[in-house]
């Protein structure tokens, strides 16, 4: 039983950032803007917030420091994504190009600034945020160890974001308008919706969640930030497509990927898996192979938002 709890907790560390970032990407793509810049946005969000943790370590610690860092990562991501929004919406640029530019800019900027501020590119931080056991809830049998032990506040924020995203996308006027812009912006415009505003909103939300995802990815898995989020932005893109641009499916996709990833990362500590004699590289490859195989069976009816990637031109018909 302990093994199951352990794997589940590990899965959360991998799944939650993927889910947050993929949900962010969903808001952007549902508004019609492809956001391939998620990797760069994650890097920027992680960079400023980890820098904040580094600078305020010693003076501050614990959950309040983490909450402030969360705010900083979201603001950074939101601001950074404005570059993408401006290029894609105002300048009608090719969205892949401006996204790639942002992806390239972020790590270079993070290293450059870190070197200026502190001489080396790695930013250290002290992890004082792990919650051993949530009071009361942690002592519930089964559910306690699964959800409320050895966890981070960011996990609950991630779950909150999932719930809010689902409601916003399907149960609010805003969500309906956003989806309309991604499917048929001309029709949305004719119905009186300001397409540009909706697309800006979509991209900024994706930036905020992307930045947050960067922080959430780094905190549980490392003690320093080295200007990279190890391709998680691209993986989130994969999870987004895997999850068919729908919040609940994105959750399942990220859980699936996170579980395989968690097994790969911790199999050597689990007796029955390490006894199988499977080489460690095969374990590392399984998440990616499994995703490909699942995609083969699920992609046939894949439907991306119709107007995705096409710059909205008011005059076009």
């Amino acid at each position: 039983m302990n093994v199951i709890y352990f794997i589940f907790q590990q899965t959360m560390f991998f799944s939650i950032p993927l889910m947050i970032v993929a949900l962010g990407g969903m808001f952007s793509e549902r508004s019609g803007i492809i956001n391939i810049a998620l990797e760069g946005i994650m890097t920027m969000g992680a960079f400023t917030s980890i820098l904040f943790l580094n600078l305020t370590g010693g003076k501050m610690s614990g959950q309040s420091q983490l909450l402030l860092a969360i705010v900083i990562s979201m603001v950074t991501g939101g601001v950074f994504s404005l570059f993408h929004a401006y290029a894609a919406i105002n300048m009608k640029a090719d969205q892949t190009i401006s996204g790639t530019a942002l992806n390239m800019f972020a790590p270079a900027f993070a290293i450059f600034v870190a070197r200026i501020i502190q001489g080396v590119q790695q930013i250290q931080f002290t992890n004082t945020f792990r919650i051993d056991s949530v009071p009361v809830l942690g002592s519930i049998p089964v559910i306690g160890p699964l959800f409320f032990k050895n966890t981070y506040i960011t996990t609950f924020i991630g779950v909150g974001i999932l719930i809010i995203s689902t409601i916003v996308l399907y149960r609010t006027k805003f969500g309906l308008r956003l989806r309309a812009c991604g499917e048929h912006p001309q029709a949305a415009d004719a119905a009186g919706i300001n397409v540009y505003h909706m697309q800006y909103a979509g991209v900024i939300i994706s930036g905020m969640l992307g930045g947050l995802g960067g922080l959430v990815f780094v905190v549980p898995t490392s003690t320093n930030f080295n200007a990279t989020v190890s391709g998680y932005g691209f993986l989130a893109l994969a999870v987004l497509i895997f999850g068919q641009w729908k919040p609940v499916k994105i959750m399942w996709a990220s859980l699936f990927f996170g579980l395989t990833k968690a097994i790969a990362a911790s199999y050597s500590g689990i007796a029955f898996l390490s006894n199988l004699g499977i080489p460690s590289y095969l374990f590392k490859m399984i998440p990616y192979i499994a995703t490909l195989v699942v995609l083969i069976f699920t992609s046939r009816n894949s439907q991306a938002p119709r107007a995705e990637g096409i710059p909205y031109d008011k005059g076009a018909r």
Partner: peptide
């Protein structure tokens, strides 16, 4: 199989590197 080439390529990147 209508698998999006972006995601399949990303997966193949990692599979190739590890292999």
């Amino acid at each position: 199989f209508n698998v999006n080439e972006v995601i399949a390529s990303i997966m193949m990147n990692y599979i190739g590197m590890y292999a």
